[in-house]
């Protein structure tokens, strides 16, 4: 089974900017935030954990603020 992570955001506007900049480089999907993870904005971005470093790098270089990165609940 693949190992997924999820990045959460304070604002949907930030999440959708993240979608825009991330999807150019890696395969991601916009998902409702798993309730166990965060109570902030309603959507998050799910990706394969092997891309974790790259996701962080892309978000930082595009000045996209995010709340945190968590393992996708199994």
């Amino acid at each position: 089974m693949s190992d997924y992570s999820v990045v959460t955001f304070y604002s949907t506007h930030h999440a959708l900017k993240a979608e825009k900049v991330l999807k150019k480089e890696i395969k991601i999907s916009v998902v409702p935030v798993p309730r166990s993870t965060s109570a902030n904005c309603g959507i998050a971005i799910k990706f394969l954990t092997e891309y974790l470093k790259e996701v962080e790098k892309i978000l930082k270089s595009n000045h996209v603020g995010f709340e945190g990165i968590f393992p996708w609940p199994k």
């Binding site: 604002s11 949907t12 506007h13 999440a15 959708l16 900017k17 979608e19 825009k20 916009v30 998902v31 409702p32 935030v33 904005c41 309603g42 959507i43």
Partner: peptide
């Protein structure tokens, strides 16, 4: 309503808003 819910139509509305900003 953009940015208010996690369902796909809300996300799509949010994308439209982001597209306007971009």
């Amino acid at each position: 309503n953009p940015g208010r819910s996690g369902h796909r139509l809300s996300v799509e509305a949010g994308r439209i808003l982001y597209d306007a900003r971009a």
